[in-house]
């Protein structure tokens, strides 16, 4: 296994009954870069992302086979400590889902699960993570109020801070800006560009422009298969497959 790949996926298949959602996915995701999974709705991008932190376990009808190596360890092996694996990655979903707790407790939730009780350490983490996502100045006076009072964009950044607090190596983002206004979307995108020095980021999107803006490495998916992948400049200026050509025309 090469050192510069954060994730290596070998022959990943996901099936429901007889239907294959993901077909023989082989993929390397480079570390400290933004990898964008691009493709039309229903092409399996989200399922691929969920396989990475085994949220697919929640749906008993899904059958997952293959290997996903993170840190040289196959996370799909059933006996692995799934909680530890999940804490290696922060998840950002389409809509922000703040926990029904105060802003402060939202950020500390994951750390507390790890067993940290030291008040100073918690305080430090809350300030540091909220600063990382640029939310500290906006919420520092109301840390103990409910996140319901925040705007959707702020809530999404809070969810990012919450994910960062467990010190993940990866950030998995599933269409993280689809519920946000353009301004908040840009904030999130800028954050990703800033955060990629410390984290490996995987972003799922169906927005071509966003993929062009963000991607260091682009992966185009169609009907459960990886059609093309490579550097975005090359891929988008010189598409090889008819599927990507069509997508590029429709998307522009």
């Amino acid at each position: 296994m090469k050192q510069d790949n954060a994730i290596e996926i070998h022959n990943l298949n996901v099936c429901v009954d007889d239907q294959r959602i993901l077909k023989n996915i082989n993929l390397q995701i480079p570390s400290h870069k933004i990898t964008v999974l691009l493709g039309p709705s229903g092409c399996g991008k989200t399922t691929l992302l969920r396989s990475l932190n085994r949220l697919t376990d929640l749906y008993k009808e899904l059958k997952v086979t293959g290997q996903i190596f993170i840190d040289g360890e196959d996370i799909l092996k059933p006996r692995n400590d799934i909680y530890e694996i999940r804490q290696k990655m922060g998840l950002l979903s389409q809509k922000p889902y703040p926990l029904p707790l105060s802003i402060y407790k939202n950020v500390t939730y994951g750390i507390k699960l790890k067993g940290v009780k030291d008040k100073k350490l918690l305080d430090y983490n809350v300030e540091k993570r909220l600063q990382e996502v640029g939310l500290w100045d906006e919420v520092k006076d109301r840390l103990h109020s409910s996140p319901d009072t925040l705007s959707i964009g702020q809530q999404q950044r809070l969810c990012l801070a919450r994910g960062l607090a467990v010190k993940p190596r990866l950030i998995l983002a599933d269409e993280p800006t689809s519920a946000l206004d353009p301004h908040s979307s840009k904030t999130i995108e800028d954050l990703f560009k800033k955060l990629k020095d410390q984290y490996t980021i995987v972003v799922v999107t169906h927005i071509l422009r966003q993929a062009k803006r963000l991607a260091d490495h682009a992966v185009f998916m169609h009907f459960g298969e990886v059609i093309e992948q490579g550097s975005p400049d090359e891929m988008f200026s010189n598409p090889q497959s008819p599927e990507l050509k069509k997508y590029l025309i429709d998307g522009n």
């Binding site: 929640l58 804490q87 926990l99 699960l113 790890k114």
Partner: peptide, 15 residues
């Protein structure tokens, strides 16, 4: 309760 909320806690390492 939205599924996303349950997934959010799970992704943070909750049982």
């Amino acid at each position: 309760v939205p599924n996303g909320l349950v997934e959010a806690t799970l992704s943070l390492g909750a049982t």
